[in-house]
Amino acid sequence: MDLNAKIYVAGSRGLVGSAIVRRLKKLGYKNILEKTSKELDLRSQAGVELFFCNERPEYIFLASAKVGGILANNSLPAEFIYDNLMIETNIIHNAHKYKVSKLLFLGSSCIYPKYALQPLKEEYLLTGELEPTNEPYAIAKIAGIKLCQSYRRQYGDNFISVMPTNLYGINDNFNLDTSHVLPALMRKFHEAKLSGAPSVTVWGSGKPRREFLYVEDLADACCFLMQYYNDSEIVNIGTGIDITIAELAAMMADITCFTGEIVYDRTKPDGTPVKYLDISKLTKLGWYAQTPLRAGIEKTYQWFLRNSANLTFQQSHDLNI
């Protein structure tokens, strides 16, 4: 990308999009388009087409999505599939129609089958049943991948798709009803420390293994791939290192200085038993994550402490636009 190129970051107020904007600015890009959900509803076909007609972006990072943890996915399956399908369909189609030079679509590691071999390789896509708790979201993300591949195959559009592992960091969602496991645990342990609570309850058995990537590293990987990757096949983005939920909870307790008991509620679902990504394709291209998990959590917690007074924990989950 030329430093003067017009770049649209869809989802620039969310966890991923805001990190991509920060990374682009650090690299020297100044012509960055950002729109809030009030300014542009990406589910609106007419609204998105008008935006493309007026603005004519040259490059697109498609980071806008409706996202959430197990509770949100279980409670709002229709919204998760509809909103995500509409967002990606509108943007990808108009990127083709208005001749965007390149588009990067952000998927999710939940696209892979629940019981696929570990680590998860890109070729495992569509080789087995999905995890039921997030199937609608996963199906929408798989549709986005296939849209990119189909437009590339039929029209030659340079649309690429990347699959990040579980993310955390600045601008994360800390609403306990809709957040992912890491920010939810951070808030739980922080509030338990402040209140002097004797224990913190963690969903499930604590045995599932997960991989976590600091969102600033993801943003760096996305900018790297936008510059250097031009193939149709998806690319995993992660660290290649996993950890049990119990180990994560113990680390979170230590970082937040919570000294009480950690209790596991085994009546709640564990989700996929093990999930971490094979990142060999990405490392062969020359990219590696730079932030160790504990260091990333410490940075995120310091940001949380500085901004907790301004975080609206009770608001309903939005579209990360």
Rank of each mutant, 00 (worst) to 15 (best):
P183M: 12
H93N: 10
Y124I: 04
K114A: 07
E58M: 04
G69C: 09
Q118T: 14
I60V: 15
A78D: 13
I170K: 15
K99C: 03
M163F: 13
F159S: 05
I142S: 01
A143N: 03
A184P: 10
P113V: 01
N84H: 00
C53N: 14
N171P: 08
L104W: 01
R56E: 12
L120I: 11
T165N: 11
K121S: 15
K102A: 00
Y98A: 01
A63H: 01
L104I: 08
C110I: 07
P132F: 08
T133I: 11
L71V: 13
T127D: 14
R153L: 13
L104D: 03
Y151H: 07
N175K: 03
A78F: 08
S64Q: 09
I92G: 03
P132M: 08
N84T: 00
H96Q: 10
K141R: 09
F80A: 03
S108P: 04
Y155W: 11
R187A: 12
I111Q: 05
Y168D: 12
I91Q: 09
L126K: 14
Y98E: 04
K141E: 04
L147Y: 08
K146T: 07
Q149V: 00
T165D: 13
I70A: 14
N158H: 06
Y82A: 10
I160T: 10
I170L: 15
H96F: 08
K146V: 04
G169V: 07
A140Y: 01
G69Q: 09
R187I: 10
L176A: 10
L126A: 13
H93R: 07
I139G: 03
A184W: 07
L185T: 06
V100G: 06
I70M: 14
K146F: 12
D177V: 01
F80R: 02
